[in-house]
Write a protein that binds this DNA or RNA. Structure first.
Lengths: 166, 166
DNA sequence: CTGAACTTTCAAATATTTCTGAAAGTTTAT
DNA sequence: ATAAACTTTCAGAAATATTTGAAAGTTCAG
């Protein structure tokens, strides 16, 4: 398989994976494209390579920047903007973990907290509260692990992983 | 907040969380409903409580059964089927991890494996292969952690978590 | 075997998400 | 100040995902 075919295959697969994790296909594809590009890439480049509109590229680039895994870059003597993805996979993973934690785990824990105050002493209510309690417990523990991961540097995490996978 | 309101809020939130993780809203809502139900629940019950059609409930129940986190239950002297969710959150999490591993991590590793064979000795190709190598490394390590989690019982995982979160 | 009770299927309808493209906005050079 | 070069916005269009509902299928008691 030659480079262009491989790159294309990677972009497609990364896009497909993204969509099964609640990330839109084009955003994931743009990210993939930047990941495997050695040079900073312009909006036009992306439009051409992925065959999508300027507006689409612009919006998804903003989102990637917002997630903190892509940055603008200015080439001297060039008017237009170029973009690069953080190439450190561990840093990208930590950043995504950080964002999803903020956007999903924290709000869910807040909901659970509210639900703890459900009134009633009947068996149904007790059972409901018990389940919410278990979910809170589980979610908090998962949150703890994610938090540790976010705070870790690669070295720490690598060592811990070694221990974990034996 | 009284029980019905709380239950409703939980079902809504679980549905919303599901959709940001690539699980369709109704499937997540049905799961939520079963999670907080003490008694086995019939298709009709779900239709009524979530205000969705019979076909929709049926399809999503099949999917939940397929994921291995919901089971059919027959009440004696009753013709129709009832459904219950596995109430052990850790078991549910392990099951979901197992399925997503099979459906997502494994195929992605297979794609990476193919991409390793990209021909070419130029700098671009080398860089591409290096990135694929890093992604493979990262994904394999994540896979190792997930695998360990899947094989763990709650006790083991709880202890490890304690170590992890200090 | 027949019909009642229930489940499954799937084509069409609906809802949701994503994308386009052109207009408006911004920045910089002259 | 003007214009060229580029970026952003967003209403409507297109694509995708989900849902409906009615017909077909299944099971079982009588």
């Amino acid at each position: 398989m030659h480079l262009e075919e491989a790159r294309q295959k990677f972009v497609q697969s990364w896009g497909a994976l993204g969509s099964s994790w609640g990330i839109n296909r084009t955003m994931a594809q743009i990210h993939a494209l930047l990941l495997v590009s050695t040079e900073p890439v312009s909006t036009e480049d992306i439009m051409e390579q992925l065959q999508v509109s300027r507006g689409n590229v612009n919006m998804n680039l903003r989102a990637l920047i917002d997630w903190g895994i892509v940055t603008k870059e200015n080439k001297i003597g060039e008017r237009r903007e170029f973009f690069v993805a953080d190439k450190d996979i561990w840093a990208v993973a930590r950043q995504i973990a950080r964002e999803r934690r903020k956007r999903e785990i924290e709000p869910m824990l807040r909901v659970f907290d509210e639900l703890k105050n459900t009134s009633g002493t009947d068996a149904e209510t007790k059972e409901f509260k018990r389940m919410i309690g278990e979910l809170t417990d589980f979610t908090s523990k998962a949150d703890g692990v994610v938090d540790k991961f976010i705070r870790s540097d690669e070295h720490w995490f690598y060592k811990t992983l070694l221990k974990l996978v034996k």
